[in-house]
Computed example of a mutant assay.
Amino acid sequence: MSSGSWSHEVTAAVPAGQLFKAAMLDWHNLGPKVAPEVIASASVISGDKAVGGIREFKFTPAMPFSYLRERLDFLDLEKFELKNTIVEGGTLGKQVESGTSHFKFEPSGNGCVVKVVASYKLVAGVQDDPSEIAKAKEAVTKHIKAAEAYLLANPTAYA
């Protein structure tokens, strides 16, 4: 079995704290509103916005899987940073044995830079696929840009 990781950066024209709240902490509420073509619905399964909490996202056919559950493993509200782990759904058990994501929102000028590092272990026999990594990076960019567009249109939201 092999493991790997990838990193990605997205620049946004809104403050780090505001984007962190919208794109990370409240994405289960905002995501279905601003990205309905991808997220059919989302909910908190347990532990709302607390370490150990689990959220579920149900996706439209635009995604290659129907749902994903993630557990919040680390949260720093002052540094706009969090880590989560896939606990069910997605490609878990099919392509990946485990997967984690680390998001950090760093202030930059009037906006911010979102830094993402994803780490994973592949299921035995599955090869790393550069096109899947490219799709994952594109999905992260769309996620951040959807939240940014919402905040630019609604400057007092999540302030």
Rank of each mutant, 00 (worst) to 15 (best):
36 P>E: 04
11 T>L: 10
90 G>S: 07
9 E>F: 00
77 L>V: 09
41 S>Y: 01
76 D>I: 10
76 D>T: 07
132 E>K: 11
67 Y>H: 12
32 P>W: 00
24 M>Q: 10
135 K>D: 15
91 T>R: 02
127 Q>E: 12
130 P>R: 03
47 G>V: 01
6 W>H: 13
138 E>K: 14
61 P>M: 09
69 R>I: 01
143 H>W: 12
70 E>R: 01
4 G>L: 09
62 A>C: 05
149 A>M: 06
43 S>M: 07
58 K>Y: 05
95 Q>A: 06
90 G>R: 00
50 A>Y: 01
102 H>N: 08
146 A>C: 12
137 K>F: 06
5 S>C: 07
38 V>A: 06
146 A>K: 13
80 F>N: 13
103 F>S: 06
1 M>Y: 05
25 L>I: 13
148 E>K: 12
139 A>G: 15
98 S>R: 05
79 K>D: 08
15 P>L: 05
153 A>C: 10
76 D>N: 11
40 A>D: 07
147 A>D: 15
136 A>I: 00
43 S>V: 11
150 Y>E: 14
139 A>L: 15
159 A>C: 10
57 F>H: 07
141 T>A: 15
66 S>Q: 10
108 S>D: 07
86 I>N: 02
137 K>H: 09
15 P>H: 12
41 S>E: 08
159 A>S: 14
116 V>T: 10
142 K>W: 03
155 P>Q: 09
116 V>F: 01
2 S>A: 13
19 L>Q: 06
94 K>M: 04
128 D>R: 08
90 G>H: 00
8 H>R: 05
99 G>L: 03
136 A>R: 01
128 D>T: 09
28 H>S: 11
9 E>S: 13
69 R>E: 08
100 T>K: 07
75 L>P: 08
54 I>M: 00
9 E>A: 14
26 D>Q: 08
143 H>P: 05
40 A>F: 01
67 Y>G: 09
49 K>P: 04
157 A>M: 05
148 E>N: 13
140 V>D: 03
53 G>E: 00
131 S>F: 04
106 E>N: 08
98 S>W: 00
105 F>E: 05
84 N>E: 02
9 E>I: 04
138 E>V: 08
99 G>A: 13
38 V>H: 00
148 E>V: 15
128 D>H: 06
121 K>N: 14
147 A>C: 12
25 L>D: 02
